[in-house]
Design a binder for these strands. Structure first.
Lengths: 193, 193
DNA sequence: CGGGCCTTTGACTGGTTTCAACTTCTGTGG
DNA sequence: CCACAGAAGTTGAAACCAGTCAAAGGCCCG
């Protein structure tokens, strides 16, 4: 019963039809993990060997610049997938960290288990493909926005899209995600509302 | 015989095994198109209803800013796929143009034909999934580099990765791809060889 | 050979960063 | 549960990276 309400199964059911009798078998390929704030799922120089589906909470992906400060490149909220997909695809060391921004719960799918899962349930290929297609499309627009807007516009645009999220994470993370300094973000916040 | 040497079939064969007897049937879902320099495959406000595989030549994706100047966000060389994947996935109008940078040849796969193709050859799901995974991974690193480097470093990094490509496209396109002005790129070129 | 587009050059400008000092928030141990 | 140390956020001044603008030069293609 409660497996039917699993957020992961729900996510899959939006894209492909899954018979309730398959819920348990499918979930058996995943490992459900609870994370405390600041726990890590991946650290730079490790290879990203798993995909993570965020059930509850919020994770982020970031890297550390030569001068030592960190830049957040991606946030994953409930029902989003997160991984360094280049590292995962090519089995090469990552230059990213993946960390829980808050208390979170994720489903982990290792590389090997993904292979087994897809061998057992080939129709899930479609689920992963369409998810990636959507995520890649979003990344194309992310890149577009970086070119289209200056820093102030970037902030206003983001705030209008995700007004509640701006409150959810520390400002220094948000600043580095938007590509500006915490000081300047602070200035922009008071300026325009 | 010459279908075996099709660059598209080659690309597929790197990821999934395809029987030679399937070459023709698979290719029948695609439309091969020749493009002259500056021909368009997509214009802003249209919906991206096809995926394109670049057989020969070079395409680019760009958009036009409010002030009127164009920003190139992506180049696709031989054996790469190009499309506005968000527009394609959600059937919503694109804000991008896709244009041939030089004389090119592409395989077009419409949305409907992709569905039919995958219904007929389900193992190609894996081909598209892994391609998207790779492309998305590359986009994650693209975003990383934009944060990691200043403009001069961006240029030097790109030049070291693709020394030949720098010669292949007009400098104003390269400049907008790297996120700087043609004037500043010109300055960087003479500065550090 | 000519016209228009691309590239270069230089001066000026300003959006954004950097730095440092101060204030406010937060969480952890006694 | 309170205190306090470290982290996070704010403020203002100074510096600079990179954009803008304008004009001249080069080059490609009809």
């Amino acid at each position: 019963m409660h497996t039917a309400s699993s957020s992961l199964i729900q996510s899959m059911n939006k894209i492909v039809k899954i018979s309730p009798s398959d819920y348990e078998p499918i979930l058996s390929y995943f490992k459900k993990t609870k994370l405390r704030k600041k726990d890590y799922l991946l650290e730079a120089s490790q290879t990203s060997t798993s995909l993570y589906f965020v059930s509850t909470g919020c994770l982020r992906m970031y890297f550390i610049r030569e001068n030592g400060d960190e830049k957040t490149t991606y946030f994953a909220l409930e029902h989003w997938w997160i991984a360094d997909f280049l590292s995962y695809t090519l089995s090469q060391p990552s230059s990213f960290y993946i960390q829980a921004v808050e208390k979170s719960e994720v489903y982990e799918l290792t590389n090997e288990n993904q292979e087994r899962l897809l061998a057992a349930f080939p129709n899930l290929e479609r689920y992963f493909r369409l998810n990636l297609q959507h995520a890649y499309g979003a990344a194309q627009y992310r890149i577009k926005y970086q070119f289209a807007f200056n820093k102030e516009e970037t902030f206003l645009h983001f705030k209008s899209l995700y007004p509640q999220f701006v409150q959810r994470v520390p400002q220094y993370m948000l600043a580095s995600f938007l590509g500006l300094t915490p000081e300047y973000l602070s200035e922009l916040r008071k300026k325009k509302n």
